[in-house]
Every structure is written in C-alpha cells, then in structure tokens.
C-alpha cells in the first residue's frame, strides 16, 4: 500500500478507529463475525438442521466442539449460523429505525411548532416504555417470524433516533451557514436534506451502530420467548429458549449462544466508542 493511499484512508474517520489496540481487536472481531454471518451456509462444519436423536445432548468434545443440543444438532454450527440470523435481524431493524427516525426527527426539528410537539410526545412516551413490551405487543399483532421481529425491534428503537436527530437539527438550525442558505432562498426540503441531515449524520450513525448491539440483545430476548426465527433456523435467542429446560442436562446449549451474544455486543460497544473518539463527536452523541 502506497503512503498516498494510506493517507487518504486514514483521513477517512472509521479507519482511525482502528488506530488503538481495542479498536483493532474489537473491529477485527466484528469483521470476522460479518464474514462468518455472510458465509455461514457454506462454512458450518455440520448441517444446522440435521437431527441425530441418538447423539442428543452430547457434551462438548470432538467432533462437536460445543456439544450437541436436544436434537443432536451441532451447537458450534448453530452458533455460527446464529450470527447470520442475529446480525441480519438486528442490523436491518436498526437501519429501518435510523432512516425513519432521522426523517421524523429532522422534520420535527426543522418545522417545530405543533408538529414537533406531537411527534415528541409520542416519541418521549415510547422511549420511556420498556422496549421488550413494545416488541412483544408488536409481534403479537403481526405474528411470529423474522420479519415481524425485525419490525418490532425497529419500532422499539425508533424513538431514540428521532430524539437524537431532532436534537442535532435544532442545534444546527441556529448555526450561521443554515441561516445563510435560507436567506439565499433555499426550500425547506433542500435545507433539511442537503445541509442539516448530512451534518447530523455522523452521530446518528454511530449511535445506530451501538444500537445494533442492543438490537441483538432484544432479538435474543424475543427468541428466548419463542418468537423470531422459526425452527429449525438457528438464532442465538431461540437456541437459548430451547435450552432453558436443558440448563441442567446440557448447559452448553445455553452458555455458548449467550457468550456469543455478550462477545458481539461488547465488540460493537468497544468499536463504537473508538469511532466516537476517532470522529470526535462525544458531545453530540450524548443527548
């Protein structure tokens, strides 16, 4: 790599997050996880759905390094494949949440008045409501499955991004360059889309990334209640739900998916913190 390219890359903020040891480890883990999630159908050592009842609840050993579950399925393969389910549900949900939240928040922040009051009343209320209740009620309405879990998580976190975006917009609105653009005759849509949102983007994206971690936990919790991924598709939460009854017989069925959730969320948080530092947006992220 030539130094010119490196200079250009290091000028790009997310890469600066890799400049510390924590950033390298956490970021590296996340990249690895993304690769595993993407290639899961091809790299799992065993078929994630293949049952072998004769070998049910086998303790970790060879060839099942994380043991087998109540159907004799390989826990390691299912944990790997679970990354695919958990990450895709959580990331999609947060992406929806961020997009809709940004639009709502931007509109509220820009237009102000009664519209802002109405939006913020709803947002404050849902923000103060336990996310698990929102998600459970929503899944009950539209039925079980990965799609509904995704939307349930998106709705549960919508308030957070709406609040955040609005705060950014309100702050930016008072800045001179915006006033200048308005004085120059720009339309509101132009101002919001071209000037305000791009400026508010960085903190919202970073918070969004951190929220992917929370989304994974929420997805796991819904899975624990038996919602979300339908059997035999593995997801970390669902694996732990069929494992509850098994806590005594085969603790590995619960322990490993739990460790996977915790490790992933920790990595997301650590890398997120490094990003915040690299982008120097600490003051703007907290709100």
């Amino acid at each position: 790599m030539t130094s010119a390219v490196w200079n250009k890359l290091s000028g790009f903020a997310p890469f600066r997050a890799f400049s510390s040891a924590i950033g390298i480890v956490a970021g590296g883990f996340l990249i690895l996880l993304l690769l595993v999630a993407f290639f899961a159908p091809w790299i799992t050592p065993f078929d994630v759905a293949a049952q072998n009842l004769a070998n049910a609840n086998a303790a970790p050993g060879w060839p099942h390094i994380m043991g087998t579950d109540e159907f004799g399925r390989d826990v390691f393969s299912r944990v790997l494949y679970g990354a695919r389910t958990s990450l895709s549900v959580s990331a999609t949900a947060i992406a929806i949440s961020v997009s809709v939240g940004m639009l709502l928040g931007a509109a509220a922040g820009y237009f102000g008045g009664l519209f802002e009051r109405a939006v913020m009343t709803v947002v404050d209320l849902t923000w103060s409501f336990p996310d698990i209740l929102i998600a459970l009620i929503f899944v009950a309405i539209i039925g079980p499955g990965l799609t509904s879990t995704t939307f349930a998580i998106a709705i549960a976190y919508l308030a957070q991004f709406t609040r955040l975006t609005r705060a950014q917009i309100v702050r930016l609105k008072s800045e001179t360059f915006v006033e200048a653009t308005i004085n120059l005759g720009a339309t509101p849509a132009h101002v919001v889309l071209r000037h305000l949102l791009p400026n508010a983007l960085a903190p919202v994206i970073v918070v969004g990334m951190l929220a992917v971690g929370d989304g994974i936990v929420l997805e796991a919790t819904l899975g624990f209640f038996g919602l979300g991924a339908q059997p035999p598709t593995p997801s970390w939460g669902a694996m732990m739900s069929s494992g509850t009854a098994q806590l005594f017989i085969s603790p590995w069925v619960i322990i490993y998916p739990g460790v996977a959730v915790a490790a992933t969320v920790i990595a997301v948080n650590l890398f997120g913190d490094e990003l915040v530092r690299a982008l120097d947006i600490r003051d703007r992220v907290r709100s």
Binding site: A220, T221, F224, L247, I254, V261, V265, N269
Partner: peptide, 22 residues
C-alpha cells in the same frame, strides 16, 4: 459497565439460578 450493559437479562438470570440457587 460494558459487561453489565451487554449481557441479556434472561441469560444472567439463568446463570444466577444455576450458581447461587442450585
């Protein structure tokens, strides 16, 4: 702080039961 905010509550509950209660 990191650990506390990342572990799913039900998982922690199960492990607590296993360790402290059983």
């Amino acid at each position: 702080i990191l650990l506390g905010s990342t572990v799913p509550g039900f998982w922690l509950a199960l492990l607590m039961i296993l360790f402290f209660a059983v």
